[in-house]
C-alpha cells in the first residue's frame, strides 16, 4: 500500500467518512465528522500508520489533508 493510500485509509477510518471524500482540500471543522475529538483520533491513527510522534505544533497546524501531507513530510514520510 502506498503512503497516499495509507493516508486516505487513516483519514477514512479516523473520521468515519468515505475514502473519496479524503481530498487535499478537505479541512478541519468543515464537516461534522472532523471535529476536535475526531482530530485526536486521526492524530493517533496517523502516528500508528506512519510510526511517527507528532509535535504539538504539528497537531495544531494539521488543518487539512494537504497540510497533513506537508507535516508528515517533515517526518520523512513521502507522498
Amino acid at each position: 500500500m502506498s503512503n497516499q493510500e495509507k493516508l486516505v485509509q487513516a483519514f477514512s477510518d479516523a473520521l468515519g467518512i468515505a475514502q473519496d471524500l479524503v481530498q487535499d482540500t478537505l479541512e478541519y471543522n468543515t464537516i461534522k465528522e472532523w471535529d476536535s475529538t475526531a482530530h485526536m483520533v486521526l492524530i493517533s491513527e496517523l502516528e500508528t500508520v506512519f510510526d511517527v510522534m507528532l509535535d504539538t505544533d504539528d497537531i495544531i497546524d494539521m488543518s487539512s489533508v494537504a497540510k497533513a501531507k506537508s507535516i508528515l513530510g517533515k517526518y520523512d514520510v513521502t507522498f
Binding site: 476536535s36 475529538t37 485526536m40 504539538t56 497537531i59 495544531i60
Partner: peptide
Amino acid sequence: TMIKRFLSR
C-alpha cells in the same frame, strides 16, 4: 484527558 495529552507534548 485525551485532548490534554495531545496539547501537552
